[in-house]
Each structure stands twice: as structure tokens, then as C-alpha cells.
């Protein structure tokens, strides 16, 4: 197999398989949650649910002061790499072209050197989280194989993307193919691990805010 065969495989059939598994798995997970529903609340409502729910979705981005005091590393490094990952994913021009081709929606991107710098910071932050996980006794004790798996599948697309952009693997079709393959593994693993939080975090936050809103209390 030549590097070009590999690139065409990852861009064609493998991408179709990965996107199909991702869509199927993620919909199963989300639809199941919604279909389960919540028990009927017989108490009279003291307020609305929609707005307080949305408010909480936004408010939970602010770290709770207690958590920050106890674990500043987790809060700071966690925020840095999450933002970096999302910026690289959604604001890099080639990624925008991919989304445009699939869904027809588009938005402005960032200049490549900005995305490049953000990616480098993200890589360092992700490495720091792994080192912290391996050296912190409590974290190490709590970590399961799944935690290391999702760290790996998250790290690899960022790393291969950085290597492909800087053309550090030759020939380029191999570099790009490896990056696309890493992204496909991420998509396939996502619905079946705690990576589902990418979607469920917002559902959970909304429910949380909505429940408090109905009770007429702030959250």
C-alpha cells in the first residue's frame, strides 16, 4: 500500500464507517436519555425551566471557587486544552471546509499561525494532564484504563494534525492520512466512552438548571 492508497482509504471508506458509527452510537446514547424521561413532578411550578436551564449551561463554565482552590491545576490546564482543542477543531480553515462540504454551514476561520500556536499550547497542556495523572497519587489511584484510552484518542488527532501542518512526516499523504485516521478513531470511540460528555455535559447542565428554575431557586 502506498501513502496515497492510505490517504484515499482514510478519506473515503474509513471516514464513512467512522462517521456512521459516531452518528449511530451518539444518537443511541442521547435518544435513550431523552426517551427515559424524568418522573412527573406534582408540585406547583414556581418558575420557568428553559431560561434557567440555559443560564446554567453557561454558568457552569465558571469554575466553582472551592474547586479552584483545591485543584487549580485541573481547572487552569483543563480550561486551556479544552479551549485549544475546540479552536483547532472549529476554526482551522481545512476543518471548516470539511464541515462546509458535509453540512453546508460555514463560518470565518483563524489565520493558520494562530491555530498553530493554539495547537502547540494544547499539546503541552494535554501532556501536562497525563504527567499530572501519572504522578498525583489520588488521580493515579482513581484512573481506569478508559481514562488512558480517551487521553490517547484525544491527544493523537492534535499531535498528528500538528505534524501534518508542519509537514514533519513525509510524504504528506501519509501525514494527512494518519491525522484523518486519528480523528476517525476519536469519532468511533466517542459514543462509547466518557467522551460522550462533549454532548451530555450540556444536557445534564440544562436539566440541572431547569429543575432549580422550576423550584424557583438560583443555581
Amino acid at each position: 500500500m502506498t501513502s496515497m492508497d492510505f490517504l484515499l482509504l482514510t478519506k473515503g471508506p474509513l471516514f464513512q464507517i467512522a462517521i456512521a458509527i459516531f452518528a449511530l452510537g451518539m444518537l443511541v446514547r442521547l435518544v435513550e436519555i431523552f426517551a427515559l424521561g424524568r418522573p412527573h413532578n406534582y408540585a406547583a411550578a414556581r418558575g420557568g425551566q428553559l431560561i434557567p436551564g440555559l443560564k446554567t449551561v453557561y454558568k457552569r463554565f465558571n469554575p466553582d471557587p472551592g474547586t479552584f482552590k483545591r485543584a487549580p491545576f485541573d481547572v487552569i490546564v483543563g480550561i486551556i486544552w479544552h479551549i485549544g482543542f475546540v479552536v483547532a477543531l472549529l476554526l482551522f480553515i481545512p476543518h471548516i471546509e470539511l464541515i462546509k462540504s458535509m453540512f453546508g454551514v460555514t463560518w470565518p476561520g483563524l489565520p493558520n499561525p494562530v491555530v498553530d500556536a493554539v495547537t502547540a499550547i494544547t499539546l503541552f497542556a494535554l501532556l501536562a494532564t497525563l504527567i499530572h495523572r501519572l504522578t498525583h497519587p489520588v488521580k493515579k489511584f482513581l484512573s481506569t484504563p478508559e481514562d488512558y484510552l480517551i487521553w490517547t484518542v484525544t491527544f493523537l488527532p492534535v499531535l498528528t494534525g500538528y505534524l501534518a501542518y508542519h509537514r514533519l512526516i513525509n510524504p504528506y499523504p501519509l501525514a494527512l492520512g494518519l491525522h484523518i485516521l486519528a480523528a476517525e478513531i476519536f469519532l468511533i470511540v466517542l459514543p462509547f466512552t466518557k467522551l460522550t460528555h462533549i454532548f451530555t455535559a450540556f444536557v445534564a447542565r440544562w436539566y440541572n438548571g431547569a429543575i432549580f428554575g422550576r423550584k424557583g431557586v438560583q443555581s
Binding site: I19, A20, I21, A23, L24, G25, M26, L27, V28, R29, L30, V31, E32, I33, F34, A35, L36, G37
Partner: peptide, 13 residues
Amino acid sequence: AGVAGAAIGVGAG
């Protein structure tokens, strides 16, 4: 895949 996923999700629910 989306239709199948939604159907399985409803079933599981």
C-alpha cells in the same frame, strides 16, 4: 446511521 441510532435509542429508552 442516524435513523438506526434514533430507533435503537427509543427502543432502549
